[in-house]
Computed example of a mutant assay.
Amino acid sequence: MEHEFYRGLAQRVRDVAERVDPFTKLRLLRLAERYAVKGIRPEPAPTTERPPPIPRPHLHVVLAPEEG
């Protein structure tokens, strides 16, 4: 169902592209192509890289002779 919506939207954008200047026509046709394939193949999920974990050194507590 979603694919049908975007196909119809792509056709409307192509119809408008026929009545505009060449620069705008090119941009509209590219937009129509993106709409035409939307819903057919899933868009890749954005990848977010996690930063590496912060190294936490093992701390050794050394007590002075008078403290321990």
Rank of each mutant, 00 (worst) to 15 (best):
E4W: 02
F5V: 15
E49Q: 11
E18C: 03
H58G: 08
T47Q: 13
P55K: 09
E66L: 03
Q11N: 10
R7N: 08
R30I: 10
D15P: 00
L28Q: 02
L31R: 09
R50Q: 13
P42L: 11
V62F: 09
A64S: 10
F23D: 11
R56H: 14
G39C: 03
V62Y: 09
A45E: 15
K38C: 03
K25M: 12
P55F: 11
E2M: 06
P44C: 00
E67R: 15
V62K: 09
R34N: 11
Y35D: 00
R56L: 15
P46M: 08
H3N: 07
H3D: 04
E4M: 08
P46N: 04
E4H: 10
E49L: 15
A32H: 01
E18Y: 01
A17N: 03
R56Q: 14
A32M: 02
Y6K: 05
A36V: 00
L31K: 07
R50K: 13
L63C: 05
E18Q: 14
Y6A: 05
V61W: 13
D21K: 04
Y6D: 06
T24M: 07
L29R: 15
A32T: 00
H58C: 02
P46H: 05
R27E: 12
R7W: 01
R30C: 05
P51S: 10
L26A: 15
A36T: 02
V61Y: 12
D21W: 01
Q11T: 10
G8K: 07
L29V: 04
A10E: 00
R7K: 13
